[in-house]
Amino acid sequence: MTDSSLTFDVAVIGAGMAGLTCAQLLQQAGYSTIVLEKSRGLGGRVATRREKEIRADHGARYLEPKGRHLRRLVHILSAHKIVEPWTDKTYIGNDANNSLTPAASSSWCPYYVAPAGMNAVGKFLATGLEIWLSRRVLAMTPTDQETWQLLLESPAESGKMPGPQEVNARAVVVAIPAPQALTILEPVHTQLPADFMANLRSVEFEPCLSVIAGYSPNRQRDLAQREIAWKTVVFPHDEQLAWIGWDSSKRSNAQMPVFVANSNPTFAQDYLEAEDLQPAGQMLLNRAGEYLNSWLNSPDWLQVHRWRYAFVSRPIPEPCLAATVPVPVVCCGDWCGGNQIEGALESGKAAAEEINRQLRRLPMPGEGVWDVIARE
């Protein structure tokens, strides 16, 4: 260990839903915990982007609290006015005649959104945690002190002090997509069980392109006059477009219409390595215009985000992936079980319990973890 490093009980790599859940449980149990996140924001794919003072959710579209863990979280978030019901209806785009039909009703389980942006959920989960943003983990190596040493990339912000270049931890939780986890763990695969690495390599993801499109305020009046019924539409049979949402309808004070469209995996794969994603984004808006309002193909501005690991297509069946080695390593995420946000929450909880089992077996907060955050 050098003067530029610190030692924690647990280092969590990734500030998505699984990583933040795991870190909260461990910290509330009494472990010293650090969260290392390569990007500048919290929440992982529960993401919000700002453009000209406009918020748009280009990651997770909404919360659908069907599972036990997400129902409890949504209850707490609703009580603190972080999320609210958005709609209980999904429409289906029919390719044959470019028409819409309502999907089967799910009124018993409305979709919830955060008017301040879906990343508000990640910010809530991060309450009280020590989190270092813009600190990509470049490598991890075992030490003679029975810790893992994590080599960190310096912060990207200009003028900011570089901070410690290494972090030492008595256990590591890798809470990022499995292919990204492999870039860190492959160099030390001889230190890890063969079946652990085989399971990690078996996970597969599908990509997605997410298009954020903003329109003239005049279109806001047009939408009001039309009194359109849909807020979210899926396109199960289209060759390009998978989904579109009227994102600005999540916010009561929206000054202009904003829509977010998602591609299907095949279309995303075709453009995944393109240097310029604008043409692909325009193609998706053209398709949306054919199904819905024709002016959707003429935005005032658009941005395209590339989600290389959007949806897990081949998960592992276990809620987390643990290596029983002298210095514990546990992987977690929605790819453990494959149940998106609900799966991520469950996986983060399972990872925390596994770390606790391998370390000091302290009393864990359980489902009361969200109540503790809400009181801070």
Rank of each mutant, 00 (worst) to 15 (best):
4 S>P: 07
5 S>M: 01
6 L>M: 12
7 T>S: 12
8 F>I: 03
11 A>W: 10
18 A>D: 04
25 L>F: 09
27 Q>W: 10
28 Q>V: 06
30 G>Q: 05
32 S>V: 00
33 T>Q: 03
33 T>M: 06
36 L>V: 03
41 G>W: 09
42 L>D: 04
42 L>F: 08
51 E>W: 12
53 E>Y: 11
55 R>A: 13
57 D>S: 10
59 G>F: 14
60 A>D: 05
61 R>V: 15
63 L>N: 02
64 E>G: 12
66 K>P: 01
72 R>S: 01
72 R>L: 02
73 L>I: 04
81 K>G: 01
84 E>Q: 14
105 S>V: 00
107 S>W: 11
113 V>A: 12
114 A>Q: 03
115 P>F: 00
117 G>F: 01
119 N>L: 02
120 A>G: 02
123 K>C: 13
124 F>V: 08
137 V>W: 06
141 T>D: 10
144 D>Q: 07
149 Q>I: 14
150 L>S: 09
153 E>F: 09
156 A>G: 13
160 K>T: 08
164 P>H: 03
167 V>T: 09
174 V>I: 13
177 P>C: 02
181 A>P: 02
182 L>G: 05
184 I>A: 00
189 H>W: 01
192 L>I: 00
198 A>D: 03
198 A>I: 01
199 N>M: 06
201 R>V: 00
202 S>C: 11
205 F>D: 11
208 C>K: 12
209 L>Q: 10
217 P>S: 08
219 R>V: 01
222 D>E: 12
226 R>D: 09
235 F>N: 05
236 P>F: 15
240 Q>I: 06
240 Q>K: 15
240 Q>E: 13
242 A>P: 08
253 N>M: 12
255 Q>S: 15
255 Q>F: 11
258 V>K: 08
259 F>S: 04
259 F>N: 10
262 N>Y: 15
267 F>Y: 14
272 L>H: 04
277 L>V: 07
279 P>M: 07
282 Q>P: 08
283 M>V: 09
283 M>G: 08
283 M>T: 14
284 L>P: 11
291 Y>C: 03
300 D>P: 09
307 W>Y: 14
309 Y>N: 14
309 Y>A: 04
310 A>L: 11
312 V>G: 08
321 L>G: 02
323 A>L: 08
323 A>N: 12
323 A>H: 06
325 V>A: 13
325 V>M: 14
329 V>N: 08
329 V>M: 13
331 C>G: 13
333 G>K: 02
348 G>W: 01
349 K>E: 00
352 A>W: 03
353 E>H: 10
356 N>M: 11
356 N>K: 08
356 N>T: 05
358 Q>W: 12
359 L>Y: 12
362 L>C: 05
364 M>V: 14
364 M>K: 07
366 G>N: 13
367 E>M: 10
369 V>I: 07
372 V>L: 05
376 E>N: 07
